[in-house]
Amino acid sequence: MRLLTHNMLSSNVKGVVDGFPLRLEAEKWVEKEVELNVDFLRHIFHKIEWKALAGAARAVGYGELPDEADAAMLDAEDFLRRFHHALLEIHVEEGALVCPDTGRRFPINKGIPNMLLNEDEI
């Protein structure tokens, strides 16, 4: 699971009003190089909840993202590289995503988050 995906995921346990962002508990992660694509980064920047991304990055030991960001920063190559790295190159292999509201843990095994709910959570 990349941090881009984490930025989209939201807990849908019954009764949860705001299930975003899920707290990332990472036990194992890997980095895989991806070619930088500026157009894609500019496009997706507006979708990204920055605080959630920065928080998730810290959870995997990457503290190079600023606490806040705005579109003007996309002109700086250094920023782009950090954004790119956090968003696309880090893969969480083992760990869990924790619902901010209920504390429900969604496990991540072999890089795959399991977001299925039990009958009583639907």
């Binding site: 989209m8 995921l9 939201s10 849908n12 979708k47 072999k110 795959i112 977001m115």
Partner: peptide
């Protein structure tokens, strides 16, 4: 799991109840 082995970004989730935030 097959998707993951191919290098795709995937998860186990129910299409009737997607665990995604809106408008993404």
């Amino acid at each position: 799991e097959i998707c993951t082995r191919k290098g795709h970004e995937v998860m186990v989730a129910d299409a009737v109840d997607l665990p995604y935030r809106e408008n993404f």
